[in-house]
Nucleic acid binder design. Structure first.
Length: 557
RNA sequence: UGUCCGAUGGUGUAAUGGUAGCACUUGUGAUUUUGGUUCAUACAGUCAAGGUUCGAAUCCUUGUCGGACAACCA
């Protein structure tokens, strides 16, 4: 037997240890999105982490919507999030909402007031903020901090009943106004919000803050390891403080922080993604240029490729910036095995084969996927007029150019050798057509005399090919890190004006009826999938990613 | 000039006191009816200075650099 020693990331090590020491028998994790936007690739990392832990340690994972702020949250987001998690290939053991716990949270708040650990503060937000001062100076205690417990109890009940206006008072935990950790300077537990909640409707007009809801929700669900991103590290003492107040079982969740994903040439904050959508810089949350899960899905990424990506990038506590090229590598790797090959010409140049009978047509067998014999073969039609890629021809070609050039010979994939005899140009000198001759002996792409032809190019039969709209995507931003800005700059200054190029391509007729979502490789060009914008008049393809192109490197030198 | 966190090739991530490894990127070569794939091979790293130790990426001290925190957001 081969011993496979997988190296563990720091969270897996903690869990392994907790299991070995008997601290926990079973682990429970959770993915706790706020339903105020669509999931992005950074969330995918977190999902893969949390649900991956469940799989490797045979535990459980809950999906819990952190819906404590009704002013920003919507059902649309709840639905998209569930769809995305499922699409990524994960099942939650339980579906919960933080709002499920509003009653319990309220009771605990009353308990804290009764114990003198919370009070109603009637100061303005500005005043409260001002009294907290800054991390290097002591804070100032609120004049309401030591009001009678009964008074706080009464006011808190009135807050709940809607007797007070928004912003007029809040419930605060009484902790330490001099703490060097700002989150411990009497954090706000409840604020008044007279807003309709997507689940509880109009039952409540006070809502708990994140810090007062999150740890308790974990506790109620029996979460053992509560994994979040680094910016919550400073919240951990508060997370623990609130648990100290309610824990009677000794079984408490442990908050563990890891570094969020950053990708080159993109932005990842929900606020910025929302900006891009609402200001129409992109077509929507699922625009294929967006780093959202729905955008990647529409772009043609597979769940496997994203999961492999998450696996590859690892989990640690140091800030990181992952090259978007790694993501692209992952989808190529996956699609290379899965996608059937077809021929499609993105920038067509007409070629007439002068010694091929004008009325003749024939068919060749073509492999659907050289990486997968079981994918079978298909027939591709051929005639005297075909289209080839415009950049597969060069009038003044360097030695290393293996494609078509004047007097040169090239192989048409699966068809014949052709030789370029004549170049036809228009009045402006643009090449409009090529006249070539073919070698009938080279049928199928081999020559009986054994002469070598270095180049093989793709083509389509002009008599049977179909037109299709192809959307070529490029990175949305020109700057590697659009968040790294000088003063007076915004990330929008670095939007790539050429991130979308729409062209009309000619593709082989075998693809004429391809359904939305079909993913193929256009040989030598890249991976493409049929977009949902397709209809009976027009087929639309998205370029998922181009093939690795070592010629462009040589040509660029 | 507060508290907390972090620092390993260009980018990520392992090694948990005992040979610094893996992936991506990059270079070179082989194979190839996709300049794709595949295969081989090379380049390249422990933030710095002290200390502990037979032995330090790992432990200690100091420093340097980077990040987080001062919403009635999460």
């Amino acid at each position: 037997m081969e011993e496979k020693k997988e190296s563990l990331n720091f969270i897996e090590q903690i869990i392994t240890n907790d299991l070995e020491t008997g601290k926990h028998e079973k682990i429970i994790t959770r993915f706790p999105p706020e339903p105020n936007g669509y999931l992005h690739i950074g969330h995918a990392k977190s999902i893969c982490l949390n649900f991956g832990l469940k799989e490797t340690f045979k535990g459980k994972t809950n999906l819990r919507f952190d819906d404590t702020n009704p002013s920003k949250e919507e059902t649309e987001y709840v639905e998209s999030i569930m769809e995305d998690v499922k699409w990524l290939g994960f099942d939650w053991d339980n579906l919960y909402y933080a709002s499920d716990y509003f009653d319990q949270l309220y009771d605990w708040a009353v308990m804290l007031i009764e114990q003198g650990k919370a009070y109603v503060d009637e100061q303005s937000p500005d005043k409260i903020s001002e009294q907290r001062t800054n991390p290097t100076t002591n804070g100032i205690e609120s004049p309401f901090r030591n009001r009678p417990i009964e008074e706080s109890l009464k006011l808190f009940a009135e807050m709940k009943e809607g007797k007070h206006d928004e912003g007029s008072m809040v419930l605060r935990a009484k902790i330490d106004m001099n703490s060097p950790n700002m989150h411990m300077r009497d954090p706000i537990m409840y604020r008044i919000m007279k807003k309709h909640h997507h689940r509880t409707g109009d039952k409540w007009c006070i809502y708990p803050m994140y810090d007062y809801a999150h740890g308790q929700s974990d506790y109620i669900e029996g979460i053992t390891h509560s994994i979040c991103t680094l910016e919550f590290e400073v919240h951990r003492p508060l997370y623990d403080w609130f648990l100290d107040q309610i824990d009677t079982t000794g079984k408490r969740p442990r908050q563990i922080e890891f570094a969020r994903l950053n990708l080159t040439y993109t932005v990842m904050s929900k606020r910025k993604l929302l900006d891009l959508v609402t200001n129409k810089y992109v077509s929507g949350w699922d625009d294929p240029r967006m780093p959202t899960v729905s955008g990647l899905r529409r772009r043609g990424y597979t769940p496997e490729s994203i999961r492999n990506f998450a696996e590859r990038i690892g989990v640690a506590k140091r800030e990181n910036m992952i090259d978007v090229g790694l993501l692209e590598y992952m989808i190529r790797e996956d699609l290379n095995k899965k996608a059937n090959r077809y021929m499609g010409v993105l920038d067509p140049l007409k070629v007439v084969i002068t010694n091929y009978p004008e009325d003749k047509t024939e068919e060749f067998d073509a492999k659907n996927n050289p990486e997968d014999e079981t994918a079978g073969t298909r027939k591709v039609s051929f005639s005297n007029t075909i289209y080839i890629e415009r950049d597969d021809f060069m009038e003044d070609a360097p030695n290393k150019f293996f494609r078509l050039k004047p007097g040169g010979e090239v192989r048409l994939r699966y068809a014949y050798f052709i030789k370029c005899e004549n170049i036809i140009k228009d009045a402006d000198g643009n090449i409009t057509e090529l006249h070539c001759t073919y070698d009938p002996e080279s049928r199928g792409g081999q020559s009986p005399d054994g002469r070598k032809v270095k180049g093989t190019i793709h083509w389509v039969d002009s008599k049977t090919c179909v037109d299709a709209e192809v959307r070529l995507y490029d990175r949305l931003f020109l700057k590697e890190n659009p968040d790294d800005l000088d003063e007076n700059e915004t990330y929008l200054d670095y939007l790539n004006p050429d991130s979308l190029q729409i062209i009309t391509a000619k593709i082989e007729n075998n693809l004429a009826d391809a359904a939305v979502g079909t993913t193929v490789q256009f040989e030598r060009k890249g991976y493409f999938c049929v977009d949902k914008d397709s209809n009976s008049d027009k087929q639309v393809w998205n370029r998922t990613v181009g093939l690795k192109d070592s010629w462009s490197k040589i040509a660029g030198k």
